[in-house]
Design a binder for these strands. Structure first.
Lengths: 130, 130
DNA sequence: CATAAAACTAGTAATTGTTACTGATATTAT
DNA sequence: ATAATATCAGTAACAATTACTAGTTTTATG
């Protein structure tokens, strides 16, 4: 059974206010302002738990550590190859690709995860001015 | 400058014959049959090097360790949520999603990585017979 | 309200996956 | 041949994450 905990509540609220998809370490550092004695293990445990029950999302962009998204609704992510930042992307009309992938495949496809890569707006600007 | 090495050659050949996207650990274990003294570090170094020069592909499916694909040509992958196995997928007509994602985005999108998730044929069969 | 069961915590140790360092060996240009 | 250097095996270090333990909160129930 799932019991209430301030730490978990606070982690969830923290993520709900952020749109930069912080790492567990970043969450930990910020949680310590409110809970000076909070443990990194507690942060990891609750992040994974919240992800399992679908209240947040866990991202594995392939480069660097996992990141967490306070928005549980399905959407896409962009990963900057230069600075590593992760941004939300509004892409619609991609649901059909599951069906597309199901052709010629004998198993069941239940979903997909897509990361887009490239240069983020900020790195693009920095590039031009150099 | 890139010099020849039997170890690297052998790792590349090993991957070319496999279609199960083995982990570095698996590659290491098999390499030891041919090179009993090969080091895990050597395996990692060459896998990363081969991936950098585009002769193999490195996969980060999000669950478990990284995997490696001897086929450098772009294609898609399926990850079984039950057994964790990674399979090649033949999906065509997905190039346009980069353009789709570029709408409403100020940066440059240069590519994407998509992993499809679900139940693999083997797990699907096992499920029905239980 | 009291209390007991169970989920939760902080703190720490252990594990896993990967990379870096070392001195020795293999490969290649001359 | 030989000199330069990429690679090697072996091992240590590292980063990210998970597991363990004893004690603390939370909540269901009397």
């Amino acid at each position: 059974m799932l019991k209430y905990s301030r730490q978990r509540e606070s982690i969830k609220n923290f993520l709900a206010d952020r749109y930069d998809h912080p790492t567990a370490e970043t969450v930990y550092l910020h949680m310590r302002e409110q809970f000076p004695n909070i443990s990194l293990g507690t942060v990891y445990r609750n992040l994974n738990l919240l992800a399992e029950i679908g209240e947040i999302q866990k991202l594995s962009p392939g480069m660097g550590p996992d990141r967490f998204d306070g928005n549980p609704a399905p959407h896409y992510h962009f990963v900057c190859s230069h600075c590593g930042s992760v941004l939300d992307l509004k892409v619609s009309g991609l649901d059909h690709i599951n069906i597309l992938a199901s052709q010629n495949f004998d198993g069941d496809i239940e979903g997909h995860i897509t990361y887009f890569y490239g240069t983020c707006p900020s790195c693009k600007a920095a590039k031009h001015s150099s």
